[in-house]
């Protein structure tokens, strides 16, 4: 935990990118606190910096300036190797386009983060079965991604995200590639993970309908958190 008791604490975070000679400021001295057990939705137009912020919290990128503290650890100071190990232990990621490995079955995709642990094969299988059970896909575990619907693939993605029981679940437009019905099922699942399993979730979305599932919604614009609205 950070000093103020938040699970995630972003302080004075600035992120700039270079495009040729031009410097693009994506995040501008941003502060954010996410308490444990919260389901936070980050909304905003394309290019507003919400995915960049998510990447900073996930340890996929580093701020140009400022700090990112998760569960009491300054992750912006960790080396690449330590950061990778930290991600494996603390972060579950859900992507818009699922990003499953096409040559692996659903259960093997879910097992991927567990390959980095010291669990035995039997223990890994047990964890995978549990995760697939949570997302309701045990019966499809032997299927390859190409034989699954978009909603099912995203559920496999969520199972991969939660299989290590991470501190944080971070979802980048998890319903962005799905129809309304499948999207609702995914949101239902995320809500259940938050409410029943007390998972702290940060979700980036364009969709106000999706954002309404969150316990808190923040709006981003031009690299700043411009509006906060309790739902």
């Amino acid at each position: 935990m950070s000093d103020n008791g938040s699970l995630v604490s972003v302080r004075d975070a600035t992120k700039t990118f270079r495009r040729g000679s031009e410097e693009i400021r994506v995040l501008e001295r941003l502060d954010l606190d996410v308490p444990e057990g919260e389901f936070l939705a980050l909304m905003g137009p394309s290019g507003s910096g919400k995915s960049t912020l998510l990447n900073l919290i996930a340890g996929l990128d580093r701020p140009t300036d400022g700090s990112v503290t998760v569960a009491g650890e300054r992750i912006d100071r960790l080396s690449r190797t330590k950061l990778a190990a930290w991600r494996a232990r603390h972060v579950g990621l859900v992507f818009q386009f699922y990003n499953l490995l096409p040559v692996l079955t659903a259960e093997r995709n879910v097992e991927l983060p567990l390959l980095l642990t010291h669990l035995s094969r039997a223990q890994r299988k047990k964890h995978v079965d549990t995760a697939l059970g949570v997302v309701g896909l045990t019966h499809r575990k032997g299927h390859y991604p190409r034989t699954l619907s978009g909603g099912e693939q995203q559920r496999v993605g969520i199972a991969r995200g939660i299989v290590t029981d991470p501190t944080l679940l971070l979802a980048d437009e998890p319903t962005g590639d799905l129809d309304r019905k499948s999207g609702d099922e995914i949101l239902e699942l995320l809500t259940a993970l938050n409410r029943e399993h007390n998972k702290t979730i940060v979700m980036v979305t364009h969709d106000p309908h999706a954002a309404r599932r969150a316990t808190r919604v923040l709006h981003m614009s031009e690299g700043k958190l411009s509006q906060e609205a309790a739902e």
Binding site: A58, R80, A85, A88, N99, L101, P113, L116
Partner: peptide, 16 residues
């Protein structure tokens, strides 16, 4: 490229 990025995202190190 995307698959390797995903592997790294879930915790695989550069050496892995």
């Amino acid at each position: 490229t995307g698959e390797f990025a995903v592997l790294k995202a879930v915790g695989f190190t550069d050496t892995h």
